[in-house]
Amino acid sequence: MNGEEHSMKTLKPYLQAKVTIPFFMQVALIIYVISALQLAPPMVDGLLSESSFPFLIFLIASPAAIKLFLDGLKAIKKEIAETGSVVVVKKKKSIKPALIVLIMAVFILLFEILGFTILAPLYVFFFMLIYDDKPQDIVRKIIYALLIGVVVYVMYVIGFDIRFPELWR
């Protein structure tokens, strides 16, 4: 347990985007190339197969991902050495992007079930609520949400002849 806690303590400062992004990209590249190589080897009968191009991309992008990963580690180590402890660079952090992802995900999940008319104004309303600094002007937001819903409906459905799902359809 102590060992686990210790390893968490030492790992935590390294869990910054400058390290995690190249790390996850490298993982994605490995999955990408393995998936390609499962189809065929890069060369079949002296000709390039369907895995050749993904293999080439892997060869080009992997060194870049590894370099960025090592650079990220080096930068954090330097930071620790200079300050004596871990000082995670304080960037402007906000929960808003995560909430936006959440309402978008809910909108997408329910879109084909509830349809445009019910969901679009709700989506716009909650979006505005999250985007604002604090919950205020609720009535105004409801009016804006309805108006935006109508304008976008007119633009897509009447203007561009696109049929959205509806609860009654």
Partner: peptide, 20 residues
């Protein structure tokens, strides 16, 4: 132009654009 109206409109247009 009201920023909230603008970005919420973009949010709706963008996601519906993919569906369209």
């Amino acid at each position: 132009i009201n920023r909230l109206v603008l970005y919420s409109s973009i949010a709706l247009i963008a996601i519906l654009g993919v569906f369209a």
